[in-house]
Every structure is written in structure tokens, then in C-alpha cells.
């Protein structure tokens, strides 16, 4: 029997989204990062175009996270409270392709830092590294709107990825992104229809579709991963089948989600069956990232430098197989 590779042709294409801006483009970044553009399922090079490989970012904080892992302190203990320096370490030592600045400290219950303080933190990071930035917020609507407006203003032209808006709170931040030329994350809680609805709301207010990244809401391994996994597969399938309102690149945050769960910090002494903690913490983040990569992730925010390194190398290796297809 002669074998012929069964190929599936899609009519849809994932939007190409660029983050960051060089001096020619009105920013100060040394380069930009473009994601998306696929016309077939993730890593199916044999039946579609995949012009850009998924990018991997690392995250820094405006305030030392309350429950930060000991195993990460070994890598970042000296810079954890200095976002600029930490960003530099992430880029220079570990190879982060973008930096996410998490502004959790502006949450009224977690420090209540002002919008001006947040803007200062972001500027510090902008000055210390040349890679494009992601600005990550929280769910306190009133406060985050103020913070993001300010941050968008002071970073005008840098084309940061503003992370995030949701259905109940998108207008202010989306308007700021349009005004100051930034890209935007549209987050929805693990649901195809809600994701689509938010994208429609955004494009209805004339938000440029080439500046939307979707966050389907990451659940980590063992804590709802199966839901995120399937919702992402469905979003990607629908997007490739031609539904433009679902054909956007997707962002996940395996770092933030993994390091909240017990499996990444409980000592082996208490849970001998769970094995070595040092390894386990990295494994948990890797398994979350690898499985979701296969569903259509284009942008990942990771925490553990060793997990980051392995996942980035795997993406590069996967794209090497592109030459043969």
C-alpha cells in the first residue's frame, strides 16, 4: 500500500501580532517580537505556514510576591525587589525574549501603590532592558484602570502588551491602548463563547485586530489544566476553520499559575511520593507549558529559569523540524 500524508487545508489564519517598537517605529526596543500567523494546527508544519515561533517571556514584580518560592529565591533572591535588575538578569543570563512587569502591588489589598509608582517601575524596566515588555495587572477594576492608563501614557509608542482586559472591564484600558499605541490581552475564563464575545466587543470599538492577544486563562497541571487544554484546542480549531474572532495568538502564564500550587513548594519530607522538590517545581511548570504549547500557545510567561530554558529549547527544536517539512 502506498502511503500519502493526509493533509487538511484550513481557510483561517491566526492573526500576526507584533509586540515592542524600535526607534524607527517610535519606541526604544532593540527589536520587536512577532507571534501568530499560523495556518495549521500547532507544529503541523507539513500542512501549513508557521512564520513565527512561540515566544517565551519571564516576569518581574513591583512588589515581592507574598508566596514566592524558595527554589526561585536561589536564582532571584538578590534582585527580587529590584524589577530593573531582575529584568536584566532574566534577559542577559537566562535569555528571556520579553519581560512581563507584574503590577500586583497596585492592588488596594496588596500594597495599593499609586499609578505613578507603577509607571516608575515600568520605566525602570524599560531602561534596564531592550526587549519588548508585557505589563501585567490584576482584577481590581477601578484601580487597574487608573494604573494602566498612566502606564500606557508614559510608555507611548513602545507598543507594550497590556495584560489584560475582561468583558466587564475593557473600555478604559482598550481606549488607552489605542491612544498610546499598545497591544492588548483579552482575557476570558476558559470559555470559547466568552472569548469570542470579548474580541467582538473590542473590534466593535475599532480596536485593531492585529493588536489583540487572547488569554484563555491558564490553569496549571492538576488544577483544571484539562479545561484550559481543551478550550484552547477548540479556539484554535475554530480560528483555523475561519472564525476570525477566534483567530488570535494565545498567551498563557504557566509560571504564575504553577507556583501557587502545593506541588511546587511542599517539601519531599512531608510528601515522599512526590519526589525531589527542586526538580518537581520545574517539572510542574514545564508540563503545564509543554501541554498547552500543543494547543496553540504563542506566548508564554515563565518563572523558573531552568523550566524556561528547557521549554524555549524545545520550541526551537520543534521549529528546526520545519525545514524538513
Amino acid at each position: 500500500m502506498n502511503f500519502e500524508i493526509p493533509k487538511e487545508v484550513n481557510t483561517g489564519k491566526v492573526a500576526e501580532v507584533t509586540i515592542g517598537a524600535t526607534s524607527e517605529q517610535g519606541g526604544t526596543r532593540s527589536h520587536t517580537v512577532t507571534i501568530g500567523g499560523s495556518t495549521s494546527l500547532p507544529f503541523h508544519f507539513f500542512e501549513g505556514q508557521h512564520p513565527h515561533r512561540p515566544a517565551v517571556a519571564m516576569e518581574v514584580f513591583d512588589k515581592t510576591p507574598k508566596k514566592y518560592l524558595d527554589s526561585l529565591m536561589d536564582y532571584f533572591g538578590d534582585v527580587i525587589d529590584k524589577p530593573g535588575e531582575m529584568a536584566k538578569k532574566c534577559v542577559d543570563e537566562y535569555g528571556a525574549e520579553l519581560i512581563s512587569v507584574r503590577l500586583e502591588g497596585t492592588h488596594p489589598e496588596k500594597g495599593d501603590k499609586s499609578a505613578e509608582e507603577a509607571a516608575e517601575t515600568v520605566q525602570q524596566v524599560l531602561e534596564s532592558v531592550r526587549v519588548p515588555l508585557i505589563i501585567s495587572g490584576h482584577s481590581h477594576f477601578e484601580k487597574i484602570n487608573k494604573v494602566m492608563k498612566k502606564v500606557c501614557e508614559v510608555t507611548e509608542g513602545e507598543n507594550c502588551l497590556i495584560n489584560y482586559v475582561e468583558t466587564d472591564n475593557y473600555k478604559t484600558i482598550a481606549a488607552a491602548c489605542i491612544a498610546y499605541k499598545h497591544t492588548l490581552v483579552a482575557q476570558s475564563p476558559i470559555d470559547v463563547n466568552l472569548a469570542k464575545q470579548l474580541n467582538i466587543l473590542l473590534t466593535d470599538m475599532n480596536f485593531p485586530p492585529e493588536r489583540i492577544v487572547m488569554d484563555p486563562l491558564t490553569s496549571t497541571l492538576g488544577y483544571g489544566l484539562e479545561y484550559t487544554y481543551s478550550i484552547m484546542e477548540r479556539i484554535r480549531n475554530d480560528g483555523l476553520a475561519g472564525d476570525k474572532m477566534l483567530a488570535f495568538p494565545m498567551l498563557i502564564n504557566p509560571g504564575y499559575e504553577s507556583f501557587r500550587v502545593k506541588e511546587t513548594w511542599a517539601p519531599e519530607k512531608e510528601y515522599p511520593d512526590w519526589g525531589n522538590l527542586e526538580q518537581r517545581a520545574a517539572y510542574w511548570e514545564i508540563a503545564t507549558a509543554m501541554s498547552l504549547l500543543l494547543t496553540g500557545t504563542e506566548l508564554l510567561i515563565m518563572y523558573h529559569p531552568r523550566a524556561f530554558e528547557v521549554v524555549k529549547n524545545k520550541i526551537i527544536e520543534m521549529y528546526e523540524s520545519k525545514k524538513e517539512s
Binding site: 484539562e226 487544554y229 525531589n276 522538590l277
Partner: peptide
Amino acid sequence: YDKAMLYTLFTLRQNIYTDP
């Protein structure tokens, strides 16, 4: 043979193979 690796993989397997 590495317990932490097995536990991670078993958890992933449990997630992927549950009835959605």
C-alpha cells in the same frame, strides 16, 4: 526512574485522559 517526574506525568495523564 524519578518519582517527581512520574508524579508530574501521572498528573498530566490524569488530566488529559479524563472525560471532558
